[in-house]
Amino acid sequence: MPHTAPASVELRDRPALLEARGLAYARNDEPVFGPLDFTLHPGEVVLVEGDNGAGKTTLLRLLSGLLAPTSGEIRLAGEPLTLARLSPQVALLSHANGLKPELTAIENLRFAAGLLGLRSGLSPTTVLAGVGLAGYDDVPTRKLSAGQKKRVALARVLLAPVGLWLLDEPYANLDRDGIQLVNRLLENHANRGGAALITSHGAYAYTSGTPRRIPLRADANRSDA
């Protein structure tokens, strides 16, 4: 299984997709986390674990280039990370789903496909069915439940022709089937050579294989981040 990812010779030959060295972030001089060192190779799923306020979301925003680190550096395929180099390769699922409540599920996905491109062989309709929402094409997103919205947002990630998934709490709001679905999607993504970094506060972790874990400790910062 590629995503079990021991530090094998095979992995060292390939360049890391994402590499963080001494990555640290401080908000108003108060350290949030770090320094942190880790790598993410193609075919790997890495789980970022931490309590509420440990800086999981912040880490994902750093890795997606939306935030600049206080110290340390992030490398993307060996080069310093910039939004211009990252954006064709990344799909981000954040707490805000990025869905328009007034638009239907399928309209949201069509827009995402127009904006981010479409993975070959997929269409908004098939992807929506793939996340268990067949028949919900024309339902306005505001009428969907929180879990269903999460599934539409996952469908958006699935549509984008990218290799790197950054998923913030992909298990939140999902039922048992939904959790299985996320695990299945992640496994497929890893098997076709994609990489994913997901955060979890620990309640529902990635269960297939043994993903590498990055523990985030908020030792330096006990206040809410």
Binding site: S64, G65, L66, L83, L86, S87, P88, V90, L92, S94, H95, A96, N97, G98, L99, K100, P101, A112, L115, L116, G117
Partner: peptide
């Protein structure tokens, strides 16, 4: 509204 529902992040992260 784009800021509040996260669409703006998606715009910033788009390859265009």
């Amino acid at each position: 509204s784009d800021y509040e529902d996260g669409s703006l992040e998606q715009l910033v992260l788009s390859p265009h």
